[in-house]
Structure formats: structure tokens, C-alpha cells
Design a protein around this nucleic acid. Sequence first.
DNA 1: TAATATCCTACAAATACAATAGACTAAAAT
DNA 2: ATTTTAGTCTATTGTATTTGTAGGATATTA
Lengths: 136, 136
Amino acid sequence: MLSKKTQYALKALGYLSARYGQGPVLIAEISKKKKIPLKFLENILLDLKKHDVLQSKKGKGGGYFLANHPKKTTLADAIRIVDGPIAMLSCVSLNFYERCRDCNEATCGLNKVMAATRDATLKVLLKKTLEDLIDS
Amino acid sequence: MLSKKTQYALKALGYLSARYGQGPVLIAEISKKKKIPLKFLENILLDLKKHDVLQSKKGKGGGYFLANHPKKTTLADAIRIVDGPIAMLSCVSLNFYERCRDCNEATCGLNKVMAATRDATLKVLLKKTLEDLIDS
DNA sequence: TAATATCCTACAAATACAATAGACTAAAAT
DNA sequence: ATTTTAGTCTATTGTATTTGTAGGATATTA
């Protein structure tokens, strides 16, 4: 299950996607419209900025906005930044790989199954983008 | 990511699958071979028994064994018992559904995307069974 | 220089996860 | 019968993660 933090992040990204090209949006506005705790949201957006998904502008007329067209950022990208690995086990994670103790990957049945699961999940998350987060 | 508890459960189920039809296996044996804390494993196996994945026998010559052929239990079944929902959000979970506050599912972009992700993941986990957990 | 709004670090509270303890029940062997 | 074996059950403890808050620092505009 995605953490609440990640849900907040995706909700905020959806909101910003709907306003892409319309200038900066205040954190306070996103917080209010999407019912996300303000200070928590600050941290989340900052994190997304540091990973080049968002850009920001300070002072009056400032706020946050997407660094690229909503189609350019995949959900896999976004989720990895905020939530970490997409795979169900570290030993099959592409971006957060960790060898598991007491287990030989070459012979481990669980490893193979989880790699197949990761591939299926990732196929969707690499295809879907921030644009798909816009509410209809 | 799967909890450690779930990893332990799947490792244990793989071990029991390899010994299917060969009589009961001691918790202590599984614990030792798969390096799973004994008392923790007790709880996990008991849980799987209560959900009819395992059966047990007490006293000398006792132990745990699969209730059905390893092919009969899907990984989706096993994971749901120990870990809970497979979906990334409760609002798209088939077995652990919860409506999310402050969000209209009919119009929510996130909901649609996560439903698609769930379908892809589930397609694999419903096809794979305990038999696939047997180490080669 | 005053007002605005993001940036940054640290912290606190709440929840979930991992592991252990110890007594209880059932079955088998003697 | 009673001892040994092995699973059953409930509770508790320690640890880690998650969620959320506080308050000042920095940058931008007017």
C-alpha cells in the first residue's frame, strides 16, 4: 500500500498537472483544495522539487509548478521519489536493490515470482503519467 | 514492499511445498532451514492454518503441512492472508475495500490509474502458486 | 524595508512492525 | 496414567516508520 505521503504527493501532482502552463500555484491552495496538511505538503513538494519534478518561485506571485509537461513524468518516477521501491522485495528492485541475506537469488523461487510481478506492475506505471492523475 | 512477516510466510510455504505429500514438517525445522525466528514463525503458520492454507498435527510426528496441492493456492491468496491488500490504495482494493474521504471515485484520476495497476499485478499473482515458490 | 511565500532542520506523536514470553491444549509413547 | 512432544493462544515489549508540527532562514516582489 502507498503511504499517505505518497497519496498526498500524487493528489498534489494531479492538481498541478491540471494547471500546467498557468503559472505558480500556492502550497496553501493545493493544501486547501486537496485537504492535505499544509506543513506536511511543504515537505513533500520540496522533495519533488529536489528531484526535478517540480519547480518553484518564492515571494509574491510565487508557488509551485511542474518542471515538465505532465506527460513527461511517469508515475513510476513520482512514486519512487516519495515512496521508494515499486517492487515487493528489495532483491528484485531495479532502483533500490538490496541483496537479501540467507538467500541465493539464482535458485530462489520467491525471487523469480516477485521479479515477474514487478515487471507487470512497472509496465503500467511507466506508461501512466502525471497527466493521468487529472480528475475528470 | 512486503513485510518481513510476509516474506517469512512465503519462504515457509515454499519449503512446505517442496515437501508436499511427505507428512508433517516441524516448525523448528522450517525455522532453522529458512532462518526465521521460531516464535514469530509459530504465529505466522497458525494464521495460515486458520485461513485453511495449512493443516497441522500435534504431538510426536506432528508438524505443519499444506492443506491442498501447492498449485491450488495462489500467491494472491497467501499474500492477502498475511499482508492484507495487494492494491496500492484501499479505494481500489477488491478484498479490503475502503472508500477514501474527500474523493469522488467516479472522477478521481488516481483511482483509475491504481485500478489498472492492481489489475496488472493481480494477473500475475493469481496465476502464480505456492508451487512457484519452490527453490530450484 | 515590509510583505509574501518557499526552504530547511529538527522534533514529537502516533501507528505499525518485529520479535518474545509463557502458559495451555492435544496427541503419542512409555 | 504420566511423560514427552509439538502445536495453540494471548499478551506484551521493543523498535522503526509514518505522520504531522514548530519555528526560523532565505529569496522575491513591491
